[in-house]
Design a protein around this nucleic acid. Structure first.
Lengths: 210, 210
DNA sequence: CGGCTGCTTGATCGCTCTCAAATGGGGTGG
DNA sequence: CCACCCCATTTGAGAGCGATCAAGCAGCCG
């Protein structure tokens, strides 16, 4: 803990960019960070949104040379960060740290596998519903009449998170809004009827509204 | 090493099944193991094929309760296996083991992320080409006129590996065979013109043959 | 108040899945 | 050794989901 460095970043800045040499890893204390990747042909995708307590940029932990993604601040953020060498040293001396890192990495792997499976077996609407429900779970804030996703989230972001296009997401959200399941604005989404989304996610029916 | 148990399995048997309590992890010595998952709605997918030197069933390493997938023997196989508690103890005493495990897990995570990206940004034909090239890399055997995938691989398997259907894979392979890029039989594939497949994988053209 | 950025919505196209059958190779049992 | 049967594979036809192309609209910030 004493070896940590405290870092603050404002919205739309980055902690690191894809391809940079990976020398530090981070733990979010406050705010929200978007981890995204971009392919050679320009396709961008969101790996995940990290909130308080979660760690990101953990490549240095297992000997990666460069960060495989970019960490962008979505909501003003403070994080703790550790140096690669320091961490290696700490893991040598206190094995539980390594074990813990293994656990976290395993969790991430399991999560990615689940999303991989979703991608191969579900239609876009189901994937969007699930993504939204997960975000509610992780970053939801109770407001009157529903649950607000607690950070700015554009259609584009949601598209990159679910592996589809901005247009398709927009259509889907419009439909849900008409059905009363959500209400949304510019980079804002409020889920009004989670149960309806669950129905869609589970492919139980085609009408998740009242 | 002394704590390892040696296990042999014949083709079409399993080391463990999805959902079983995860008590041991394995390292392949010889042969080939298919790691696959199945969803509640019956969709099956292949996570990877593990060959000599690779480890699988590593959930116990980071505290998972049950195996998230099934390990099926594809080519007669011997493996070493370690008990969960033993491993935990070893990691406590010899930190490099944990560090190494982190590295391996990190590699797997990177691999899965790459495939996830492929799934969101590429067409089926490209994905199949890439999968095949990777298999050539990992399990290719030089034979006259090409490189043989060194274990039985059905269209169904390839479909589950690339997130598509048996039918689509069959069509694609037929086309490639006509073009002279590969030749194939029942659960056998020989790549004759890797360069052609690369062209397809990179989306450089629509005719990778001579 | 103006411009920029994010959102909406229509029309069309094509890739891929789905449904449906037929074919053939290989291993097994007699 | 041969015949049979099973399973992998092939191939056709058709439908539909979602991407792409193309404008137009509307909050929000400066």
């Amino acid at each position: 803990m004493a070896a940590a460095r405290r870092v603050e970043r404002k919205r739309d800045t980055t902690f690191f960019r894809q391809g940079q040499e990976a020398v530090r890893f981070f733990v979010v204390m406050e705010g929200r960070v978007k981890i995204s990747q971009i392919t050679a042909d320009g396709h961008q995708n969101v790996v995940r949104y990290a909130g308080p307590g979660e760690l990101f940029g953990c490549v240095p932990l297992f000997g990666g040379e460069a960060y495989p993604g970019t960490a962008t601040v979505v909501a003003n953020c403070t994080a703790l960060s550790w140096d690669r060498l320091t961490t290696m040293g700490l893991m040598e001396r206190y094995p539980p740290i390594a074990t813990n890192a293994l656990k976290l990495l395993g969790g991430e792997l399991a999560d990615l596998r689940r999303r991989y499976q979703e991608l191969t077996s579900q239609r876009v609407e189901q994937r969007v519903a699930r993504a939204l429900l997960r975000l509610v779970e992780k970053a939801g804030k109770r407001v009157e009449g529903g649950v607000l996703i607690g950070f700015p989230l554009s259609r584009q972001d949601l598209a990159e998170l679910t592996g589809t296009t901005l247009h398709t997401v927009s259509r889907i959200l419009s439909a849900w809004e008409h059905a009363g399941a959500i209400s949304s604005g510019r980079r804002r989404i409020i889920v009004r009827n989670p149960h309806g989304l669950v129905s869609i996610a589970e492919d139980l029916d085609t009408d998740g509204s009242a």
